[in-house]
């Protein structure tokens, strides 16, 4: 492990990796029952949906955007798929409809950010409110939609276990692989890094940046739908009220903790995985210790703060190199 670190700058990713290892080891030593195959799988399984969402968010953040509508896009199109399937439509049709919904949301986000030039933070926030509103105003009978028996043919994506590994972990890994290939092996992926790093330079070199911005939001939306289906299959229902919660902050933290800077152009799938594992370990350990909900939030917050602080002390931002308008 230390060999891996040698010669590398102590950046956010490494700091979080070290933090993760420290916490993991101390739990393993001091917490009976933590270091068992079953518990480790439970640990990863409990954060796999968060991780999948993080992958979607990572694409947008690398492209120097942010997508606050992801939770709404996780909840509403997935719940719609379930409602349609429950109402007797063929599952394939239901899923296609949900996919169309998610893509439309992504396109809307992208157009607002790329063409109307509304700050991503605000545009996606408003779109999220709107999508949640569409869900509430008549797509479903109740805000909580049950997993319909008609979709049982795909319920394994969140429920089953193969070779001792839960499918939801595999879903996370599969999504990670796809996103990794997209980001590192395709031209579009390179372009996203390019425009995240310097939009004007990318534009000058001939990259058509606006369609790519739309693409990145579409990908985030589609990934959110996928996460939604995994979540719904796993807990056998979809509570569309999760839009009201502060989940989105967890998603952003997973992404950023791992070292994908909000100023764009840096990071990759590994960062998301490390961030996700850190959060998962903390939550799992504290649940075993029976720490109260608020106590968990407090500890989690402090650990995150420590990670961010260490990074900014070791790699201070300097007035000369800070990008204008970074928040």
């Amino acid at each position: 492990m230390l060999n891996l670190l040698r010669g590398r700058k102590l950046d956010q990713q490494i700091i979080v990796l070290i933090l993760f290892i420290l916490i993991f080891l101390s739990f393993a030593v001091f917490l009976p029952g933590f270091i068992s195959a079953g518990n480790i799988l439970t640990l990863v399984r409990s954060v796999s949906v968060l991780g999948i969402l993080g992958l979607g968010m990572a694409i947008v953040v690398i492209g120097r955007g942010i997508d606050l509508s992801m939770i709404a896009t996780l909840a509403v199109p997935a719940a719609w798929v379930m409602t349609l399937a429950g109402a007797g439509y063929p599952p394939v049709l239901a899923i296609l409809a949900g996919l169309a919904f998610a893509i439309a949301t992504g396109v809307l986000n992208g157009v607002l950010v790329a063409y109307a030039e509304i700050p991503a933070l605000f545009a996606t926030l408003a779109v999220g409110i709107g999508i949640a509103g569409i869900g509430q105003s008549g797509l479903f009978e109740y805000d909580i939609v049950a997993w319909p028996p008609a979709l049982d043919s795909i319920s394994w994506i969140g429920r089953g276990v193969i070779l001792g590994i839960p499918y939801s972990i595999l879903a996370f890994l599969a999504a990670a692989l796809v996103v990794h290939i997209f980001l590192k092996k395709t031209r579009m992926g390179f372009f996203i890094y390019a425009l995240g790093d310097n939009l004007l330079a990318a534009r000058i070199t001939g990259v058509r940046v606006r369609p790519i911005i739309i693409l990145q939001y579409v990908m985030a939306s589609v990934i959110a739908l996928f996460a939604g289906l995994v979540l719904a299959a796993s807990s056998a229902n979809m509570d569309t009220r999760i839009f009201n919660l502060t989940w989105i902050y967890d998603v952003i933290l997973v992404v950023v903790l791992g070292g994908i800077g909000l100023s764009g152009g840096r990071g990759g799938v590994w960062n998301v995985i490390i961030g996700t594992l850190l959060i998962g370990t903390i939550i799992n350990g504290m649940t075993i210790m029976n720490v109260s909900f608020e106590g968990q939030n407090l500890v989690r917050g402090m650990v995150l703060l420590a990670a961010l602080m260490t990074d900014s002390i070791l790699n201070p931002r300097n007035e000369e190199t800070a990008k204008q308008g970074d928040i």
Binding site: S46, V49, L231, S234, S235, D239, I242, I283, T287
Partner: peptide, 8 residues
């Protein structure tokens, strides 16, 4: 009252 949380 999150069912996902109850599950995990």
């Amino acid at each position: 009252y999150e069912s996902a949380k109850a599950k995990s």
